[in-house]
Nucleic acid binder design. Structure first.
Lengths: 340, 340
DNA sequence: TTGAAAGCGCTAACAT
DNA sequence: ATGTTAGCGCTTTCAA
């Protein structure tokens, strides 16, 4: 491995001058720099990261913690975060929690042990108090995404769940449905709860009464969506919903499978709409009516918020960014048979 | 931040003794260790990673480079690798290349700049010579997965593409199909080429002639599968294939969408089978006939191979592990209407 | 069983 | 414009 010292020996300059050349420091003669840089290239020198980090007390690494990276929604957010920080010379460490609080805490601890400069976390559950119990976390900038926690204010990048949910629901009601089912994740999570509230209020505004039997709240995964859909649609005709809203893309995937297995047609027998919009969603047929693609925006917003905290350009620790939502009409809601 | 020095001050022992306590060194009195460890816990001390790495010249970090983590196949392999190395006290740095050679090289360089201890790479393309041009890579243990490169021998974890492809093809032929289409990735990649060879040989063994017009080779993505399927099935009845084999799960996703949009039924109008088996595949209906789930096995095999190289328990640099394959019957090939 | 001291490769304060 | 020096927190001889 080549070191600054080696380069100093070889070029005849001091270590510091070599360092100046590498870091584009102004106090260096152009020809000195050129001479040094040539050797740098020849030896394909890269500064030792551990040494840099140790000395500067900045690792230029951030942590990104989500339940599952094979989930397109979180995966695409992660790719957005990584792209942003890579452009800034940072490395992103990706951790998955499999929706377990224990894994989440373990991930945070392992990241802190590496003295990362900041964390972006999609938290599990609803209580934020456990975060205060994690040693040293208070000194590390933290951005939460997708889900709001109880407890002291924190930095968030979220979507307007209530409004977006009302957007989807109202659209379905516009198609004349009066029995709309709602399939969501654990209701104690703000992301599920707020989506549910938006759904209920849209029903209320339309003068429809709210029917508890059309609501399912379980885990966020494919299996959960499959089971809930089978259950809701397995009831007799006239009782069962004529439209379904899914609060996440894995739930939707499971729902499509269940609907297909029941031999029902989308949107003729059952109209469908869904939150989230990872690429895999566009592979479904008919193409689901969903909200706009905000994955990259969430990633970028969380990343730039975190960077401004790391650079101390921002000291407030109760920042909040709400990513705007819009309706994307597909062929699953009954708007037009042509759209797939 | 707490340091060894702080702990030494507080406990009254030397830095070295504290270090011994932390690392379970035998040369330390039990009660000394107990006293030190209590303070370690109280201060929730974790050794500084940068300092450890700088001093020991081992970062206990490995790199994992794949085209795309939102692709379930690579994503699940990645989670397997991460799980393995996490259990060994290692960190896994995940990088994506978006199927670009340039991004791949940039990722390798950025990992080497961090002095990671080893790399697991799912390479793009077919030529391996560019790897020899990457400075310092030769000193870092490297495992290639999924795709074999030309050039000098390297360490591989692969599947038996020819055999697995023949397995899928022969099964389709057993259903009486004589016009079987094959949709794959870039034919210059060994993974695509070998799957194609297996397909052709299975046809030959069945006494069927090989029809070039039933083959499509493009990118590995959803879009590629969609376009290729539309093209193959858009030809007139009697000419078009009655069965399709997809060489990757994104290709299959695109294919399902195309088949659905054409208003064709699986397996009645068109029988389908596919390589790879990420979780999302089981959300399709009818459930596709595929190969067994080997994602976690590939990850574990690559990870343990890499670890033995890092630990120098293995010095051979032309290792090879072939993950065995099996056929998983679904409802997409026409075996039984019951199976979904 | 314990401790002292050197040094990993780098950055930054302070010379010159 | 360039060089000297101290030290980040840890591991590792070597000595006691």
């Amino acid at each position: 491995m080549t070191t600054l010292k080696d380069l100093a020996m070889e070029t005849g300059f001091s270590i510091k001058t070599v360092s100046r050349a590498i870091h584009d420091h102004p106090d260096i003669k152009a020809e000195t720099k050129a001479a040094i840089m040539e050797v740098v290239r020849k030896r394909s020198f890269t500064p030792n990261w551990a040494a840099q980090s140790l000395r500067s007390q900045r690792t230029r690494t951030i942590g990104f913690i989500v339940p599952d990276i094979t989930n397109g929604f979180f995966g695409e957010i992660g790719m957005g975060v990584d792209a942003f920080f890579r452009a800034q010379g940072y490395t992103t460490l990706i951790c998955f929690t499999s929706n377990s609080r224990e894994n989440e805490i373990a991930s945070i601890r392992s990241l802190l042990a590496k003295s990362i400069d900041g964390i972006i976390l999609a938290p599990v559950g609803n209580s934020g108090e456990y975060l205060d119990g994690v040693p040293n976390l208070a000194d590390t900038p933290l951005i939460l995404i997708d889900n709001r926690l109880s407890g002291p204010p924190r930095n968030y990048v979220l979507q307007d769940n209530e409004r977006n949910s009302a957007l989807l629901t109202t659209h379905m009601l516009g198609h004349g449905h009066s029995r709309v089912g709602f399939i969501s994740g654990p209701i104690e999570e703000s992301s599920a709860r707020e989506r549910f509230v938006g759904f209920r209020e849209a029903l209320g505004k339309a003068g429809l009464s709210f029917d508890d039997s059309l609501i399912r709240s379980g885990d966020w995964g494919i299996r959960g969506g499959f089971d809930a859909t089978l259950e809701l649609l397995g009831t007799g005709e006239g009782i069962r919903p004529t439209a379904l809203i899914f609060a996440s893309s894995p739930l939707l995937l499971g729902g499509y499978k269940a609907i297909h297995e029941l031999g029902l047609a989308i949107p003729e027998d059952i109209a469908v709409a869904s939150f989230e919009h990872p690429d895999v969603i566009d592979a479904l047929s008919p193409r689901p009516t969903t909200l706009g693609k905000i994955e990259a925006d969430i990633g970028a917003a969380a990343a730039s918020m975190l960077l401004s905290l790391i650079d101390k350009k921002e000291t407030d620790t109760s920042l909040e960014t709400i990513i705007p939502g819009e309706l994307i009409i597909g062929g699953s809601c009954g708007c037009a048979a042509l759209i797939h």
